[in-house]
Computed example of a mutant assay.
Amino acid sequence: MANPSEHLALLAALRWQIAMGADEAILETAAPRARKPAALQPERPAAAPEATPRAAAPRKATPHGEAAAALAGTANTLEELREAMAGFTGSPLRETATNLVFSDGVPGAPVMVIGEAPGAEEDRQGKPFVGASGQLLDRMFASVGLSRAESLYITNILPFRPPGNRTPTDAEIALFLPFVLRHVALAKPRLLVLAGGVAAKGVLQSREGITRLRGRWHQVSILGGEVLMALPTLHPAYLLRNPIAKRDAWADLLMLRRAMNDGGIGAQEKP
């Protein structure tokens, strides 16, 4: 019999799935709640030929952009990348932020989540996705058997909080994109989840909104020429403001879980 704390956790996960509009089981039979990390690491899924690889669109290089790309390229470990980003002086955001927000979770985890930009609480703690949005994110991924303690690695497309929690500009996203792509290359996830429109449009180099990008897999070319599959989804902060959209987020999570269970991805899979 489950102990009281595990029982409460199970109830919380069930409430979340009901709120998300869950109407189907992830597996044919119930799986044990405790999973070994190896069970969450299928073979790297083959890139589906129907999807079009998306690489960073050519942009006119700026001195700061060239410096960012050069610094990112010199980092051979995650710690070296953190130090390079902390020492990068090409953005005024570092002057108004309290902390560099680098990452949380398990490096080498099968799923890497890329969010938008740190908020006030993230800036104070120096970690991505804390506070109300972070708690919701944890419940979302727990509903499909994933957690930042064992099977998730989390970062943001910007490492510094924009003043007043404003939306990052296109120039800011382009400036830090080399760091993001290097971060992915060093973290070596099997799958990417792009949380929110800013992250999705920035990494995919697309002008489409998140409601058009979500619900299907995309290919992303990272530094070194490797191609990873990425799934855009709605940001937890958006779901807090628009609970009715939780059904769409649940459909995205089911796609992620199926891809991990099957060891492959159908590019045309729809929620």
Rank of each mutant, 00 (worst) to 15 (best):
Val113Trp: 03
Arg139Glu: 10
Pro110Asp: 04
Val144Tyr: 00
Met112Tyr: 11
Leu146Tyr: 07
Thr155Met: 01
Val144Pro: 00
Thr96Phe: 13
Phe141Ala: 02
Gln135Gly: 14
Ser143Lys: 05
Ala132Gln: 14
Pro107Gly: 00
Leu152Gln: 03
Pro118Ile: 11
Val111Cys: 08
Pro128Ala: 05
Val101Pro: 06
Leu152His: 02
Leu152Cys: 00
Gly134Cys: 03
Gln135Leu: 14
Lys127Thr: 13
Ala117Cys: 04
Ser143Phe: 01
Ala117Ile: 00
Pro110Tyr: 08
Gly105Phe: 12
Gly145Arg: 11
Gly119Tyr: 11
Leu146Thr: 03
Gly131His: 05
Gly108His: 11
Gly108Thr: 09
Arg161Lys: 13
Arg148Ile: 10
Val113Pro: 01
Ala149Glu: 15
Ala109Lys: 09
Phe129Asn: 06
Ala120Glu: 15
Arg148Cys: 09
Ser133Pro: 07
Gly119Pro: 02
Ile157Asp: 02
Val106Glu: 07
Val111Tyr: 00
Asn99Ser: 13
Thr89Asn: 12
Phe102Ala: 14
Met140Phe: 11
Glu95Thr: 13
Ile154Leu: 10
Val113Lys: 02
Glu150Met: 14
Ser133Glu: 14
Gly119Ile: 06
Asp104Ala: 15
Ser151Thr: 15
Gln135His: 12
Leu137Asn: 05
Pro162Ile: 06
Ala149Met: 13
Ile157Thr: 10
Val113Gly: 05
Ala109Arg: 01
Ala149Ser: 14
Gln125Lys: 12
Leu136Arg: 11
Gly126Lys: 02
Thr98Ser: 14
Leu136Gln: 07
Pro118Asn: 06
Pro110Gln: 04
Ala132Trp: 11
Thr96Arg: 12
Pro162Thr: 11
Ala149Tyr: 13
Leu158Pro: 04
Glu116Phe: 08
Pro118Val: 11
Gly119Gln: 10
Pro107Ser: 01
Glu122Arg: 09
Val130Glu: 01
Phe141Lys: 05
Ile114Ser: 00
Val101Asn: 09
Val113Asn: 03
Leu100Gly: 08
Tyr153Asn: 07
Ile114Gly: 00
Ala117Tyr: 01
Asp104Ile: 08
Ser143Arg: 05
Ile114Leu: 13
Arg161Pro: 04
Gly90Met: 10
